[in-house]
Amino acid sequence: METGKISLLNGILRKKSSAHLVWILFLIPALLVYSIFMAFPLFQSIRLSFFTGKGLRPDNFVGFDNYVSLFTDPVLSVRFYNALRNTFIFFGIHMFVQNTLGLLFASFLASKFKGHSVYRTIIFMPTTLSTLVIGFIWTLILNPQWGALNKILTAVHLDSLIRPWLGDTQIALPIISLISSWQWVSLPTMMFVAALFTVSDEIVESAMIDGASNAAIFWRFKIPLILPVIGIVSVLTFVGNFTAFDIIFAMATHRGEPMYSTDLLGTFFYRTAIAGEHPVAEPNMGVGAALATVTFLLLLTGVLTWLFLSRKQRLEANR
């Protein structure tokens, strides 16, 4: 008994000095990998945006020149503003589809009914597949030579709607945005379902007993729960869309065809930094890094706006 106590005391004393060390040892592997392969490259990218030079390690300091050419160079800036505008259109379509369809599906799925989980499983299916594979399948279906979609339209006497779906500069981007939204609509749906579930049946029932109408219940209880989810969906979509690449690569090549009409910041970044812009197939890493930094700042603005708004909303809700 006595010796047991002493050895326990010794153990504690010994551990006290080595306790910190053990905890640090537990943290170090994760810290190293995360720092070397995530934090460091992101910071270095900002530094690199002030340099120019050929090859993999530009070492010629040029101040803000890369940014200046990105914003004003007659060729580069046209591509940049085009990609920026397209990215906002891409984002806008996602926001519209995901929030309307997501909320619609969620309002159905929030109540239990026969087949409930089958529908949920189906809605989620495209989300688990590779965007590249999804893009290729749809490209085949929209392919005018095969014309799988066109055959359906003809069958239902809507042949007048037939277009060169991916060949028309006016509609290629909306089509691709819709397909991407089709793939990702499951996530907002499930988030809305989770939000709607938190309105307990008792609250709703007691409100109904008090004479509240369905509309009143919707505005009083559901909207305050849905708004923050719309916020999260927006910010997640924003972050995802501003580096989107795969779907454009699959359906319109990395040049955002036709005529750069589907070029996004992600594909533009790939060309400037990695593949090289046509016709000079040589990457410009400095400008690429400047573009990455601008994208980063845009994301940061978006995320901070969301944090600010959601904080404000929470404070108001608590008042």
């Binding site: 392969f37 995530m38 460091f40 490259p41 992101l42 990218s45 993999l56 930094a273 990695i274 890493m285």
Partner: peptide, 16 residues
Amino acid sequence: GLMIPLRLGTINLLQT
């Protein structure tokens, strides 16, 4: 790191 897509650091990752 949750909010920052690593793609933005691709050039330096390539160097590393």
